Amino acid sequence: MKIKITLQLMFLFLMHAALGQGVIIKEMKGRIFADSVAVDKVNIVNFTTQKATVSDAQGNFILSLKTGDIIVFSAVNLETLRRKVTDQDLLQEILQVVMHPKSIILKEVLINESAITAESLGIIPYGQKKYTAAERKLYTATSGGGIDGLLNSVSGRKAMLKKEIIVEKKVQLLARMDVLYEEQYYLETLKIPLDYIKGFQYYCIDDADFANALIAKNKTLTLFLVVKLAENYKQIIAVENK
């Protein structure tokens, strides 16, 4: 029995020695680059041995490595890199490591509408009236005077352009409503049937108080008015469906 146990221990010892042969541990020098520039303060961790170091101002580091080790490179402004050490890596005099800058995704970009304007950029003088496309057409048709102004009046062009301005303003107000209120708000909060939502929007912008509040971007007032208008509109729907 003692001889058997001794032989088993010798066998395990020989297996351990055999497995240990050929494993090369090297004090490896390395250098880290990002966009062809050496990077300092990168954390380098040998995940296999739990040994760690940090790159210097020239991107250099020294770490004990062997084939098969998993190395993790990380920094605040760089994408984390995992690398498995190969036999070829250990043959190099300096291990070259290339990392990539992190891509920062902006969730939301807010633009101060009052900060960047044609006036602040010096394109037009402060206080000058700004015309929409339809208003510019009407101004051109009516400011010429003489025979051109008379012809425009006789042909009805001025009346047509005035109607175009009204339509343009309504389109702008509808666009603002689409930004302010989602479909679920009409359905769940205001209880407006799906087929009547577009009609309700036109009903709202025809209300002078609501239109003015919308133009002034007074969200508090528009929320107050839209609830009142919704109640009135639902009564109209109820009468129509009798």
Rank of each mutant, 00 (worst) to 15 (best):
I71Y: 00
I71S: 00
I62C: 10
A38M: 11
G20D: 12
R31C: 07
T80Y: 04
K66D: 12
D40S: 15
I25E: 15
Q58T: 14
R31T: 02
Q21C: 12
F73Y: 08
A18I: 03
D56K: 00
G22H: 12
G59S: 07
I71G: 01
M28G: 02
V39I: 15
I24R: 15
I71C: 10
L65Y: 05
N77D: 15
R82G: 03
T48F: 00
I25M: 11
K26T: 13
G68M: 07
L81T: 06
I24P: 01
Q50H: 15
V42Y: 05
G22A: 13
E27L: 10
T80V: 05
T49I: 06
D40F: 07
Q21P: 01
D35I: 11
I44W: 07
L19C: 13
I62W: 06
T49H: 05
F47R: 05
A34P: 13
T67N: 13
A52M: 15
A17W: 09
F61Y: 11
V45D: 03
N60W: 06
Q50W: 10
G68D: 14
S64L: 15
A57P: 01
T48W: 12
A17S: 08
S74I: 04
N60E: 08
I24D: 14
N77L: 13
F73W: 09
G30N: 02
R82E: 14
V23Y: 03
S64P: 10
S36W: 05
E79L: 02
Q58F: 03
V54T: 14
K66H: 14
L63D: 06
S64E: 13
A38E: 13
G22F: 01
